[in-house]
Simulated assay, not measured.
Amino acid sequence: MFKVIERLLGDKIATEKISLTGSERFRGKITGSCPENLREECAKACPVGAFQVTADAQGYAVDYKKCLFCGKCVEKAMGSLQHSSDEALPVITEDAAEVTAEVIKQKLGRSLHVRHLDAGSCNACDFEMGAMSNPIYDLHRYGVHVDASPRHADLLMVTGVVTRNLEQALRMSYEAMPEPRLVMACGACAAGGETYGASYAIVGAADKVVPVDIYIPGCPPRPSAMIAGLLAAADMLAERM
């Protein structure tokens, strides 16, 4: 917090260019070649079943919608697998994010309106979402506006695994949105639904209740990944209008 205040007082503007590459300690995409004798151990170590053994040349696949980026599979691989510092967003690049920011102004002709729905999160994703509006990430420079009502929203941003108590709220929020409408599952709970396992109180991932257009992996995702997803959503919305 003090660093932000120092930047504001010293530079006046603290806003930074959105980057999909994290620090050296950031756990992003998993890279490397996992030895055949360790693949089953890596799969067993994954608490959400995101690491899967395959029959192709690579020998493994990672379902990033479920992945918690906990590093357990990397530990079992004994140095043959590594976490890169790149976000696990294969469709979205930094160049695309920059281009899509212009789409909001040029194609939509207005701001992108977002309705956030917490379907049962631990609030980690929600805290990171709040950071999008701070002077560092400055979400509003892209023309993205958060609405209080789904009736005014273009995109429904869902966080948390869907609980049975909020299943109806999610469905009703989606039905209240005008066409064309989009849904973003933000974080491992909403995207993969495996974080808390099976329970009488849990429905699961958001796509079990409503159709999902964009998945943002992470536990929780970084604000920059969320913003990149929102910019990609603006591009998708422009194509549907």
Rank of each mutant, 00 (worst) to 15 (best):
M1V: 09
M1E: 11
V4F: 07
R7K: 15
L8M: 10
L9M: 11
I13F: 10
I18R: 01
T21L: 06
F26Q: 06
R27C: 03
R27L: 04
P35H: 10
E36M: 14
E36I: 12
E36K: 15
R39Y: 14
K44P: 03
A45D: 13
C46V: 08
G49I: 04
A50I: 06
F51I: 02
Q52L: 15
T54Y: 14
A55Y: 06
D56P: 06
A57N: 09
G59I: 11
D63G: 09
K66V: 00
F69Q: 05
C70Y: 04
K72P: 00
E75H: 04
K76Y: 12
S80T: 11
E87I: 07
E87C: 10
E87R: 14
P90Q: 04
P90N: 09
E94I: 01
E94H: 06
A96F: 09
T100F: 12
G109V: 08
S111N: 15
L112F: 09
L112T: 05
H116S: 02
L117Q: 02
L117D: 03
A119I: 06
G120F: 00
S121P: 00
N123G: 05
D126N: 11
E128M: 15
M129P: 00
M132N: 05
N134I: 06
P135R: 05
P135H: 04
I136R: 12
I136H: 13
D138S: 14
L139R: 02
H140N: 10
V146K: 14
D147L: 06
D147G: 06
P150D: 14
P150S: 14
A153T: 12
D154Q: 04
M157Y: 09
M157L: 15
M157V: 08
M157G: 01
G160N: 11
V161D: 00
V162M: 07
V162R: 07
T163E: 13
N165P: 01
E167Q: 14
E167V: 09
S173M: 10
Y174A: 03
P178V: 08
L182G: 03
C186I: 11
G187E: 05
A188D: 01
C189K: 00
G192N: 09
G193W: 01
E194D: 11
G197D: 12
G197Q: 10
A198Y: 11
S199A: 13
S199G: 10
A205V: 07
A206Q: 04
A206H: 03
A206G: 05
D207Y: 12
V209A: 07
D213F: 11
I214S: 02
Y215N: 01
G218I: 07
A225C: 07
A225D: 09
I227V: 05
A228T: 00
L230G: 03
A233N: 07
A234V: 05
D235E: 15
M236T: 07
L237E: 08
E239N: 10
